[in-house]
């Protein structure tokens, strides 16, 4: 089997938002929506900090679909639009999506974005990969792990563009892959592990 995933080196992540913009470009993501966002954890302003000067910490957390082994979104989807594919990715069949937004409410990571209106693109044409399907009003979308790229054997765009090489992409079912080794050897952080969603995406120091 194949379980594709991304591991994020939290020390190397500089919160630059390159991944977010690379993803937006590659996947034709409209204005006001992002499939991956880099937040400063527990901060309410960009590049804020936690604590009192000078005893401060800041943790950047790039947040996108965690491609869970046990996806909460899939369980609640009434039409089967959200599915786990044979590469271990959580995907959406846009044709089956009826826009009920049950998945959005169920996702503990709040990484799904919904086309409440006709998508507003700036520039006002379809940018990104020509194989990425266009989504319309009433449809849910989120990180596909760059399905069209990874199907072609390429790395996800966020991984290609990350200037610090903080993002490691690979197959967790291949014990020799870099990502598997990191998972075994490093101190790993899984987001909201207690929810039992079993994210494939993980963070490490």
């Amino acid at each position: 089997m194949t379980r594709l995933a991304i591991a994020i080196n939290m020390h190397r992540c500089i919160g630059c938002q390159t991944c977010s913009n690379a993803c937006k470009m590659e996947n034709n993501v409209p204005m006001g929506m992002l499939w991956t966002r880099t937040i400063a954890e527990n901060c309410d302003v960009t590049d804020g900090a936690v604590g009192e000067f000078p005893n401060l910490t800041r943790t950047y957390l790039p947040m996108a679909c965690q491609h869970c082994e046990n996806p909460a979104c899939q369980k609640v989807c009434p039409t089967g639009a959200t599915y786990k594919d044979d590469m271990g990715r959580v995907e959406i069949d846009y044709d089956k999506c009826i826009g009920c937004r049950m998945c959005m409410a169920a996702c503990p990571y709040n990484v799904r974005v919904f086309n409440w209106n006709d998508p507003n693109r700036d520039p006002d044409f379809n940018y990104g990969d020509k194989d990425v399907p266009v989504r319309s009003k009433g449809v849910m979308e989120k990180c596909t792990l760059c399905k069209e790229r990874t199907d072609r054997g390429e790395e996800p765009m966020c991984v290609v563009c990350c200037p610090t090489k903080a993002r490691i992409y690979g197959d967790l079912d291949d014990p020799n892959s870099e990502i598997s080794q990191i998972k075994r050897q490093r101190s790993v952080r899984i987001l909201l592990e207690e929810r039992g969603t079993k994210p494939q995406v993980f963070y490490f120091e």
Binding site: C16, Q17, T18, M25, Y127, D129, M157, V160, C161, P163
Partner: peptide
């Protein structure tokens, strides 16, 4: 429609940031 690092450079020199994208 798309901007990415030039992959004819050595891997070490394939750079981009959010402003390029």
């Amino acid at each position: 429609v798309k901007i990415e690092p030039n992959d004819a450079c050595r891997e070490e020199d394939q750079r981009i940031c959010l402003r390029g994208i």
